[in-house]
């Protein structure tokens, strides 16, 4: 799988672009097309490309590393949903506000974005777990 120089070069250029694209999609998601699901999938595509070129390398197989990623994402989403109950608000109450930062101007801070981050992490963890599980060579 790793004998194509053209593919390897193409991936070396494409991967950082994809990662950056994922970041942009995630940050823009609340106001433009994008969000946790899509950004997660784009990140997963970047991981897949690496897998196509480099194979599993010397990564130790059989470790549930990315299941921990899934768990972390689920935990983050759940905590975001639960946090308002500590303040006496109903489950899943989101809040948002705007702060002014130098250079960037008005930036929105939303607790929904934290929840979306959880979604993003779960999607990445899920796809990567599946990819590694199914492409392993025994």
């Amino acid at each position: 799988m790793n004998d194509s120089l053209i593919l390897a070069t193409a991936v070396r250029i494409t991967r950082p672009v994809l990662f950056l694209f994922a970041v942009v999609l995630f940050l823009k998601g609340h106001n433009a097309p994008g969000g946790g699901f899509i950004a997660g999938l784009v990140t997963a595509v970047a991981v897949l490309l690496g897998l196509l070129v480099h194979g599993h390398g010397n990564r130790k197989t059989g470790r549930p590393t990315f299941l921990y990623v899934v768990a972390a994402g689920l935990g983050l989403a759940l905590l975001t949903a639960l946090a308002p109950t500590l303040l006496g608000w109903p489950f899943f109450t989101h809040s948002f506000g705007f702060i002014d930062l130098p250079l960037l101007g008005s930036v929105e801070l939303a607790s929904a974005a934290l929840f979306d981050l959880g979604v993003y992490v779960v999607v990445v963890g899920n796809v990567v777990t599946v990819l590694y599980a199914l492409t392993e060579r025994r």
Binding site: V123, N126, V130, A133, L134
Partner: peptide
């Protein structure tokens, strides 16, 4: 639909694993 697509992917992946 957006969530259905992603869940559909999860289902497909699980089915493929089972097939394998």
């Amino acid at each position: 639909i957006l969530t259905a697509i992603v869940i559909g992917f999860g289902v497909t992946a699980l089915m493929l694993t089972l097939a394998f």
